[in-house]
Simulated scan of single mutants.
Amino acid sequence: MSDLPTNKMEAWRWTDMSALEAARATPRASAVPSVEDFWIEDEGPRLVFVDGVFDAARSTPGPVTVEALSADSNHPLAAATAGTGWRVSLDAERAVTDIQIVHVATGGENHLPGRIELGRDAVASVVETYIGTGWSNRLTTLALAEGARLMRSVRILQDSGFVSLRDEATIGQAASLVSIFLGAGGAAARIDGHLHVTGNGGFAEMGGALLTRGDERKECAVTVLHDALDGSSKQYWRAVAADRSAASLAARVDVARGAQKTDGEQSLRGLLLHRTATVNLKPELEIFADDVKCAHGATVGELDKRALFYLKSRGIPHGLATAMLTRAFVADAIDRIGEDTVRKAFTADAERWLTAAL
Rank of each mutant, 00 (worst) to 15 (best):
D290A: 08
M17Y: 04
G186E: 06
R115P: 05
H75F: 02
D335R: 12
G172T: 00
T106Y: 05
I191N: 10
A209Y: 00
V178P: 02
I99A: 10
D16N: 14
G132A: 01
S136N: 07
Q260C: 06
R149H: 12
S2N: 13
R252S: 09
A256V: 07
A333Y: 06
N74G: 15
L229C: 05
I337E: 00
C294H: 08
S70I: 00
W39E: 01
N7K: 10
F309A: 11
E168Q: 09
I287A: 09
L210F: 10
P33C: 00
S248Y: 04
D42N: 14
A356R: 09
R252M: 12
T84Y: 07
P113I: 00
A143P: 10
P45A: 08
V64L: 10
G147N: 07
R336F: 02
T262H: 03
R238M: 02
T26K: 08
N137T: 00
P76G: 06
F288W: 15
L325C: 07
G107L: 00
L268M: 03
G147P: 05
L142N: 09
A239R: 08
M9I: 10
G201N: 09
P283H: 10
G147C: 08
F203A: 10
H318Q: 15
A145R: 03
L150C: 03
S136P: 04
R115K: 13
L211K: 04
K293A: 13
G207F: 01
I334Q: 08
D98S: 14
G207P: 00
G319N: 15
S125R: 04
F329H: 09
L69F: 06
A221Y: 14
V255P: 01
Q100G: 01
T326A: 12
K282N: 11
H226R: 01
R314P: 15
A78W: 01
L77I: 09
G214N: 07
K218C: 03
K305T: 15
D340H: 11
V35L: 02
V240R: 02
V123G: 02
S2Q: 08
G199F: 03
A239C: 13
V300W: 07
R343H: 03
T84W: 04
P61T: 05
T198A: 13
S176W: 06
I156G: 11
L285Y: 09
S313D: 14
A345W: 05
T15S: 13
I116F: 11
A56T: 04
G315A: 06
N7E: 08
I156P: 08
R94Q: 15
L268C: 10
A239K: 10
D91S: 11
R217Y: 07
E302Q: 13
L303M: 09
R352W: 09
G270W: 02
R275G: 14
I191S: 08
G214M: 04
A345H: 08
A348R: 13
T133H: 08
L311E: 13
E146V: 00
T141I: 01
T262R: 00
D192H: 04
A321F: 05
T212H: 13
D192I: 02
R217K: 14
Q235G: 01
L77H: 04
S160F: 03
K312D: 15
G85S: 04
I116R: 03
R327E: 15
E286K: 00
P27Y: 05
H296P: 07
T15Q: 12
N7M: 04
F309Q: 09
S59W: 07
R275C: 12
N137M: 01
